[in-house]
Write a protein that binds this DNA or RNA. Structure first.
Lengths: 144, 144
DNA sequence: CCGTATCCGACATGATACTG
DNA sequence: CAGTATCATGTCGGATACGG
């Protein structure tokens, strides 16, 4: 395929209205960023997935999520709590016992996360192949 | 009783753990990370959303996505290309003309992104409120 | 127009030690 | 057990300048 065509560009030119929550693109922050930042960070999704299996204590989470440091687990779980996605409960026993569970809002997110996870699995092979193909075609040119 | 609890908008709804795409929870890295890293980074989603409206040239993307630097647009679009989510076409004109469009795989991701965007919009208010409530209840204690 | 190449600061994350 | 505090560091992303 040698695309020599400089004529009219094919396809629609407008962003579908249902995908443009900002109204205008010159307004970068429109709410979706907040959620995406949470979804995107290294550990939140793993915490959500783990909590989807039911309430967990701090140490249970840490053991379940391989590689997470105490500090990052604390931060992650605090941010999720702050956003109202996770409910933190402290039992005044000795030693203290704390458990975490998804709120209704958080549980709703799990459906999306689940869809994302399924999509990932479905396309994992294709993506891996695309990557190696790209790397083969562009030697020495590292992106990542 | 009266366990001290903070945060959370509604009562927790336990979700059955059919979410584990890895088979085992002690093995959290199973491909979903790759996709999440792409979803999670600052610009990929915005590029995908923009391309959902049809093919775009480099400058069009940059103008549409407010705040993105040339460097980051290049990197973002290259990574998406490498993953086989975006197709890059170079027309040998002078000056060069390049356009980007979603591949079939990339278009599939659009649906998920769209779902995520809708979820964000729906819960934006609740999240914002949860945050300010948290911040009110925990003064001086910043998480972000 | 469409990039690439550098430099650099800010922030996220990790390691470690300490507390209630 | 469930954190907090502190320090070190690696990466991300922005600004800028240059090149095809």
């Amino acid at each position: 395929m040698s695309p020599t065509h400089t004529g009219g560009t094919a396809g629609a030119t407008a962003v579908p209205a249902d995908l443009d929550p900002c109204g205008r693109e010159d307004h970068p922050d429109c709410g979706i960023r907040d959620v995406l930042d949470r979804i995107g960070d290294k550990w939140s999704v793993l915490v959500i997935v783990e909590l989807a299996g039911g309430p967990r204590r701090f140490r249970e989470l840490q053991r379940a999520i391989d590689g997470i440091s105490q500090r990052m687990l604390t931060l992650t779980v605090r941010r999720l709590e702050r956003d109202g996605l996770v409910l933190r409960t402290v039992y005044p026993t000795v030693p203290a016992r704390v458990d975490y569970r998804l709120t209704g809002t958080g549980a709703g997110l799990t459906h999306l996360v689940k869809a994302l996870a399924e999509w990932s699995l479905t396309h994992r092979a294709a993506i891996a192949e695309a990557r190696s193909r790209y790397d083969r075609a562009h030697p020495g040119h590292d992106i990542r």
